[in-house]
Design a binder for these strands. Structure first.
Lengths: 96, 96
DNA sequence: ACCGACCTTACCGTTAAAGATAAATTACCT
DNA sequence: AGGTAATTTATCTTTAACGGTAAGGTCGGT
């Protein structure tokens, strides 16, 4: 469960990065120079084969001039205020 | 430039995680069980001493039932609107 | 066909994330 | 004060991110 969801997260995030980069007419090599991240590493991230660190994601977002949130696929089931979760909550006793 | 900004990013992100966890009355040990991430690792992340991977951040966001964007500090200089490309920016003349 | 720009994949070395455990520290109680 | 929970820090091992380089692959253009 975790594994497939995480693969999808990485794939979707990579997709968003690639779309954003392509929309700006940047090549991997250009983005590599802008971010300091090598082009092979960027390729792996964009194809969902690598699990980037937060600072890596931040450097990409900075270079593409979008917030990190624009790159992180949001498939966790939560989006806006409070989506009622399909599964059991934990004991959040003093919450509310 | 990158270094200080990244430290601040990690510190701010960790702070948001801690605030969200505390607001739900969860201990590090409880969050560790929910995420599969060890309590020492969570402590390092919350105190900004570790650079978490995207899937790690995602597991934390899932357990806290907030989107990843709620945890990632947004100090990249860009705000909210996902600019659909004004496209006259980006002076990459020196690159290319 | 060749060419050139772009992307992918594979290998290697360095570095750091992450789990486990234990120890030390701090906070919060009565 | 003592006691307990919570958190931090330290050490170790395994795993993977990342850069570098080189090789392979794809596509469009002349």
């Amino acid at each position: 469960m975790v594994d497939n969801a995480e693969k999808k997260l990485l794939a979707d995030t990579g997709h968003r990065i690639r779309e954003t980069r392509a929309a700006q007419g940047l090549s991997l090599e250009q983005l590599a120079r802008l971010t300091g991240i090598s082009a092979p590493a960027l390729s792996l991230i964009e194809t969902g084969k690598r699990d980037p660190r937060l600072t890596t994601l931040n450097r990409i977002a900075d270079a593409l001039r979008v917030p990190i949130a624009a790159l992180t696929a949001n498939l966790s089931g939560i989006e806006e205020p409070n989506t009622p979760l399909p599964y059991e909550g934990y004991d959040l006793g003093d919450y509310q």
